[in-house]
């Protein structure tokens, strides 16, 4: 399994972008977190097809990697979340290609337990791409739109 789960935009004006996404794409937020712990960004999630999402992040703290990236490069795609079935197998591939891992998570989410791995953007090419793998079947029928991931940009 290799799925494209969530492209993530980084913006300096999340309210304006929210209005554009609603007006131009007809999408409404299905989840919002004012600050993702450890990343210093807010996160708004929009449903984008079956079990896939568009995420919009905005820096809420100075000095974070997201704030620096926004200042350096402006708005744009800051991360792409990809789902793979076998994170352990991926570890070997990454090592074989010299792709560094900058963070790993394995924690329960609303829709089951997911493991995720952030890859170094200098090795994958910006934006930082991340792979996730659900390690346990869905445990809840509810959806807040964050089933595939834990948090946000590491680039």
């Amino acid at each position: 399994m290799r799925r494209l789960r969530r492209p993530t935009l980084l913006t300096g004006d999340p309210e304006a972008l929210d209005a554009r996404i609603a007006g131009d794409l007809g999408l409404s937020r299905c989840s919002f977190e004012a600050e993702l712990e450890g990343f210093g960004v807010s996160s708004a999630i929009y449903p984008l097809g079956r079990d896939r999402f568009l995420e919009v992040c905005a820096a809420v703290r100075e000095g974070t990697s997201a704030a620096r990236r926004l200042e350096r490069a402006g708005e744009g795609m800051s991360m792409v979340i990809l789902q793979v079935a076998d994170l352990e197998g991926q570890r070997e591939r990454l090592a074989g290609h010299g792709i560094r891992v900058v963070a790993e998570f394995d924690r329960p989410q609303t829709r089951g337990r997911w493991a995720s791995r952030h890859l170094h953007p200098a090795d994958t090419g910006p934006p930082c791409s991340r792979s996730t793998s659900r390690t346990r079947p869905r445990t809840s029928p509810s959806s807040r739109g964050r089933g595939a991931s834990t948090s946000a940009p590491g680039s």
């Binding site: 007809g26 984008l48 074989g96 290609h97 994958t124 090419g125």
Partner: peptide, 23 residues
């Protein structure tokens, strides 16, 4: 808007192929 079909990337494909194992 009904579904996500793909993305276009400026950059080398090999690193993403290595990361995902996709052909």
């Amino acid at each position: 808007m009904t579904d996500l079909r793909g993305i276009e990337v400026v950059g080398p494909a090999g690193r993403w192929a290595a990361a995902t194992g996709a052909p």
